[in-house]
Amino acid sequence: MADLDLKNIKATVVVDARGTYCPGPLMELIKEMRQQPVGSIIEVISGDAGSAKDVPEWLKKVNQEFLGVLEENNYWRIFAKKVKDM
């Protein structure tokens, strides 16, 4: 998804995982994904550069959708969509 589209996305829920270390942001995403219904968009804010690469990898592995990542000043906004129950 293009950056412009990502900026306009209205996430169902936003999780601020700044201050947690790897695999913290991923675990925060999973916590939300388990609670939210299918179709939800979850935005994870991470201060950890590794997570911007780690989260898409995990989403691919468990067949959930990765929408994209926006790099901001010193943090990353990672967007995921829950497409099936988990």
Partner: peptide
């Protein structure tokens, strides 16, 4: 614990 966690959530 880090490896175990990520593996456990990756099926």
């Amino acid at each position: 614990a880090m490896i175990a966690s990520v593996a456990a959530v990756s099926e």
